[in-house]
Every structure is written in C-alpha cells, then in structure tokens.
Design a protein around this nucleic acid. Sequence first.
DNA 1: CCAAAGTATTTTGTATTGCAAGGTACTAAA
DNA 2: TTTAGTACCTTGCAATACAAAATACTTTGG
Lengths: 110, 110
Amino acid sequence: MNSQLKRGTLELLALCVVSRGDCYGYELVNRISKCMEITEGTIYPLMKRLRDGGLIDSYLEESPEGPPRKYYKITDAGNDELKRLEDEWTRFSESVNMLLKGEFSDESDK
Amino acid sequence: MNSQLKRGTLELLALCVVSRGDCYGYELVNRISKCMEITEGTIYPLMKRLRDGGLIDSYLEESPEGPPRKYYKITDAGNDELKRLEDEWTRFSESVNMLLKGEFSDESDK
DNA sequence: CCAAAGTATTTTGTATTGCAAGGTACTAAA
DNA sequence: TTTAGTACCTTGCAATACAAAATACTTTGG
C-alpha cells in the first residue's frame, strides 16, 4: 500500500478512534491495522505529536499482562480538530473523485 | 488546505488529466488548481518524476505567446499505472470512510 | 525604446511524516 | 532458562509538497 496516501489521514484516524473511547498505543495499532497497514513506528511518534499539540491527554494504567499501558484520551481541542480534519478529508476526497471523473477539466480553460 | 493529504494523489491526478489529452505543465497547474491548491513547484518536479519513471513522454512545441511549451503525453505504462493508482485510491478512501464511520472498531478486538 | 505583465519552465532548499529497524521491559508458559 | 506475547520508545531514512527565486519569451502601453 502506498504509504504516501496515508499522510494527513492517520492523524484524523487516530483522533477518531480515540474519540470513541480511551485506548492505548498497542491497541490503536491493532485496531487501525484491521483496515490499513500500520506499525508502531508510525503510531507512537504520531501520538506524541498529538499530545504535544494538546489534542490528546495520556495516563498510565497497569496491565494484567505485560508492561503498563499508556492510555490516550481526546481533549476538547482534539475534538475540534477532529471535526475540522473530517471536514477537510471529505472535501478533499470529493475533489479528487470529481477530478477523476473529469468534472473539472472539460470547460473554461485558460 | 492540508498539503499532506495531497501526497500520493497528485501523481494519480496528473496522470489522469494527461490521459485525457496531451497538455503542458503550466496548463496542468491551472487545470488542477480549479479543484485543488497547487503550484508549479509541485507540478514540474512531479512531471519529471513521472517522465523518469517512463509513465509519460514529453515533446516541445512553440507557443503563440511566451516561451515554448513542453507537452506531456501518457505512455502505455502510464495508463497501466493510472488504473492501478485509481484502484488504490478507491480502496484507500473507502477504508478511511469506513473507519471514520466506526465500521471496523466495534467487534473482535484484542 | 523601455517597462510591465502574462506566459512558461526549472532549480534549490526545507518541512513533514510514514515506517523500518532496533532497543527496553514486563509476564507467563514451555 | 528460553521463548513468545504484550507494550513502549527512539533513530534515521526516504519521499514529496511547496515556497522562492531565477530565467526567458511575447505583447502592450507610454
């Protein structure tokens, strides 16, 4: 899968998943992996960026198996950003689909 | 507009536009600009990559106004790649939309 | 004739970010 | 003890959108 395509959408997807319920990195990787190839090397740095940007908070919780889990929780700013990104994605993908269908290039050139 | 979103799709869009008829860089910028912010600094390097990859050919033609135009023409390999990218885009955007709608994350976790 | 504006191409440099690769650490089972 | 599964984090690289600037041609107006 073309990794370039994912740029700009992973932030949206991560925020979206977290907005439906707190979850930890490893879990996030497994969830998103269900529909799209993704690894930890992508998610952990991404979550750090989101946290640095104040879009998510995090807290530690012990795990019944393995090391403690760092849970992520969306903030108000994160919810706002989620809406904005969702909108942006919708507009963007519709533009691409229109251009692919040729609904932009057939009149009023130049 | 989030420039990261465009990554991976511009190649598809450029191939698609060129596949509908030979056109030169400046024209391509104007056409794609109708539906998406784009500048020469993006298109010219992109066309060079496509040409280097054998997906398009190019030829010079004099212009009635200004310097000569470099027209781009899609190759057979370019048409194949166009189909592949279109497919990839469709699958990808549907995955994103499904995840956004929550149709992936509600069963069989862990 | 000269300046400005529109057309057209190209190059350089920078910022972003997906991801491979590798490391740490804990628990449980073999 | 070793292995496997869970869980986290970091380093470094590759790809690429795009701002910015340089070049060059033509036409038009003063």
